[in-house]
Nucleic acid binder design. Structure first.
Lengths: 238, 238
DNA sequence: GAGTATTTTTACCTTTAGCTAAAAATATCT
DNA sequence: AGATATTTTTAGCTAAAGGTAAAAATACTC
């Protein structure tokens, strides 16, 4: 044990930063500009917050070198992610929100609900392991299923895949895909992945061809069609 | 039409003040100290906020004379009250929260949910007209059922009454009453109302006698036992 | 109605979280 | 390696929401 870090509730801004750092930490530290862009905030503000997070023992931070989460910071981030994904699930399954509208509402709610609420909600929902976008829901103990899906942009021609996940955040993307029947679990065969412009051509089960541009192909995550649907593993990076 | 009061979302503090002013406005204006006590805040802070509310067109305020809501302020307050009561209903009916724990959670949530959420929740709950404590839920259009119940402390000996409402806020009160089976809808006959010390003696349907001290008797609201259960009316003071 | 008590306000601080503009460090390019 | 470009930090401001302590107004009491 180290410091007198009595767990006083973290402000919602702090939570936002922790979540974004977590999301962006593929490995190593994240830069001020990246975080600033995600949070629509000035880079200078991020520098300030990085310092504060460091003092609070939630992140390590070195000037000009970016920040990364401490175990405690990661724990807090995952707690929020769990809340977010459970709330999204609730919004869709019980309040009939559409795929597209769910993210924004959850973003606000996740900072207002208690652990008590979260666990009761999990109970109500039957302890789901994935949210409606296909993202794994961190368990109450902080473990998280290892991610097996990869962006469609990294698939290879001829592969038969299943849509495992669609990144939320951008409602238009979800909207567009939804209209074309590109929903979770849908099977596709990859016709072409063009290196030059990143365009991906796929064919769905009805034989319709869909052409996805680079950014779209990076928002759709797929798994090999033969890969079993369920998984549950222990912690790891995002 | 008057001012450039573009409806930008109100902060949650502002909302708290509006609600408290609304609750305390039996008639006329409310004092700084009253509001300060309710919100656990220094009187000076209340003075500041009163001024701000005035500028925003949410309240009228005169130095040394207290504040009261403008129609717009009242509308905002009622919107929050609606949210609060719908959320409480949801917490109890779907998340199995107990009578006692519901208030605090709802207090935080009501500032985070959107109108969209609120109305979908109302739908899910079947558009209830009262919350689990018996308080009327303001309608989406801002109307509110007229209150017909009065505190038990104002009942008179010999009256046969039904528990119509129990004020939330103090979990211990709800706890105590719950343990003794004094729940919503329960019929009681008033045995004695002692003017000196405000003690009220009642007898329940099983013939058990309960003695309530002054403060408790002010938290329990009753209606004449013959009065029909449902009511729906238009706007009025709390 | 004068004097005391209480309430309310004023004046001035504090923290959180953001901003801008300029300075400093790091990266990139030829 | 030197010059330019980009990123990051520093310094100093702002607005919300709170707090304290002293001054001012109102209320109460004899």
């Amino acid at each position: 044990m180290k410091g007198p870090e009595t767990t006083q509730p973290l402000s919602s801004s702090i939570g936002d930063y922790l979540k974004v750092i977590w999301e962006l930490t593929e490995s190593g530290a994240v830069s001020t500009t990246d975080v600033a862009a995600r949070l629509s905030v000035a880079p200078a503000s991020v520098t300030n917050m990085f310092r504060r997070l460091q003092e609070m023992g939630l992140a390590r931070y070195e000037r000009y070198r970016g920040a990364s989460l401490t175990p405690r910071g990661r724990r807090e981030a995952l707690r929020l992610v769990r809340r977010h994904r459970l709330i999204e699930t609730f919004l869709m399954e019980h309040l009939k929100y559409s795929w597209q509208d769910v993210h924004e509402e959850a973003e606000r709610l996740e900072h207002a609900v208690s652990d008590e609420f979260t666990e009761r909600l999990a109970e109500l929902l039957g302890h789901p392991s994935r949210d409606p976008h296909g993202d794994p829901i961190p368990a109450a103990d902080g473990t998280l299923a290892v991610e097996r899906s990869r962006p469609l942009s990294e698939a290879s021609a001829g592969q038969r895949v299943r849509i495992a996940k669609v990144s939320d955040e951008i409602p238009e993307v979800l909207n567009h895909l939804g209209e074309r029947g590109m929903t979770l679990g849908r099977r596709l065969s990859v016709k072409e992945v063009r290196a030059l412009d990143g365009i991906v051509k796929v064919e769905d089960e009805e034989g319709n061809e869909h052409v996805l541009g680079e950014s779209l192909a990076r928002s759709v995550f797929v798994r090999d069609a033969s890969d079993p649907a369920r998984d549950r593993g222990s912690a790891g990076s995002p």
